[in-house]
Design a protein around this nucleic acid. Structure first.
Lengths: 240, 240
DNA sequence: AAGTGGTCTAGACCACCAT
DNA sequence: TGGTGGTCTAGACCACTTA
């Protein structure tokens, strides 16, 4: 009776749960009803209900904790470092970056930015630039591009005085959760502006990462172009 | 009775299956017994048996086909292109690379190679260099390093006249299946030898990918250093 | 002790594939 | 038609957390 059907039963349950998550009816950090409760609510067996949740847990949208319950995932520092930050030292252990704001300005979408965000060229955007340091030295420049229409009233203060990660800010202030990203990497000659910030000589190679982030409804919500000095660091990925 | 226990029952079943796969008792391409059969053999319920297989299917070690059965995965061209080849055109569709052999020689492990393969410096190795072209132009140089002890009797002929992928050769000729890789990427100035092969000017930036491949027993079996011209192509990764 | 997720059972029925 | 994997049920019991 709970509306959505068509395919398998557990997929229907999954869609309903996903919609509640995407709409904000279930908020990040919140404890969701127990499996037994949900099973009776949806009028399915506990096995089917668990199967519906399994996928969401695998996508790290929900987090199961034995004895406590199932929670809606949040974007904490740890999650960022583990799943969304792929620059590591060539030697030594991964660590949290130290972030400094370079600027926050209004802009309009260039050809490249428009294409990657799926908006029209010339659409008003925010352009945020941050400098990230690892082990005391600048290693990475982030150029973040956002559609103004999707982030009404976003201010530099929010960006600069945030205690947590940027994805956490998106989640807290706008109810938008990044669940998936696509990254495209190239080797390029460093741009003069970036060279200065990274304290790199002109003409040196840098790694550029163009990352498109998607929310729970699979909409593009952010384009981030990272420029990385890979003299002492590198990009790491584990692939199946 | 089937030996291995300790944790959950389905993990035990999984370990036994995994051992049969790693030892070659179950070979790539082969149809494994049906779930009902395995369930009675292991003396577990069908649900538990399925749960044991679920993980292996997710790791793409087994492939389920409704109505037909469950098969041991093979390294065909499609799998390679989809899961182990991440260089795509900046514009247009992904395509199969055209591979040419540059050389096949015996060598000894350098510092870097030894570290990444987990062997001692100076250990005898094979060093294979291939040139890969996309859309008619050379884009990528692969430098493959293998521990001679792990690949006894490997010949250039096998490498050059192989109809399929290199991972397929490993599987057919040595019974070694690559199931997981780690990749580390940097931007570097192109090396003169590589520049010539890629028809790149000296001093241009290239993307280097250091990939370590692991088999089913989680042993390091191959180091592949790819040097990529990213003027018209790029490295693509989708991340959760 | 009560509530949660994690494991396991012993089936039934469906969808798909080969013959 | 018979065999396969895919879905679903209605429980039971275990491991863990909190009070």
């Amino acid at each position: 009776m709970n509306s959505l059907d068509g395919g398998p039963l557990y997929k229907g349950v999954q869609r309903v749960l996903m919609e509640q998550l995407a709409s904000g009816a279930l908020k990040p950090g919140q404890l969701i009803p127990s499996e037994r409760q949900l099973a009776t609510e949806f009028n399915v067996s506990i096995g089917t209900l668990r199967k519906a949740i399994d996928d969401l847990v695998e996508q790290r949208i929900l987090i199961r904790q034995q004895g406590k319950g199932t929670f809606v995932a949040t974007h904490d520092r740890e999650r960022l470092l583990f799943y969304f930050f792929h620059v590591v030292p060539q030697k030594g252990l991964k660590s949290y970056p130290f972030v400094e704001s370079v600027f926050f300005q209004k802009s309009v979408a260039s050809d490249d930015v428009a294409n990657r965000l799926g908006i029209a060229v010339g659409t008003p955007t925010f352009h945020v630039r941050n400098k990230l340091s690892l082990d005391g030295a600048p290693v990475l420049i982030d150029d973040i591009h956002l559609d103004q229409a999707r982030w009404p009233g976003l201010t530099p203060v929010q960006f600069k005085e945030r205690p947590n990660t940027i994805y956490n800010l998106y989640q807290d202030a706008f109810g938008i959760t990044v669940v998936r990203t696509e990254e495209r990497l190239r080797a390029e000659v460093v741009d003069p502006e970036h060279a200065k910030l990274l304290k790199l000589r002109a003409g040196m190679p840098v790694l550029t990462i163009r990352r498109t982030a998607f929310d729970m409804r699979n909409q593009r919500v952010e384009l981030r172009i990272s420029t990385v000095n890979t003299e002492k660091h590198e990009y790491f990925a584990e692939l199946l």
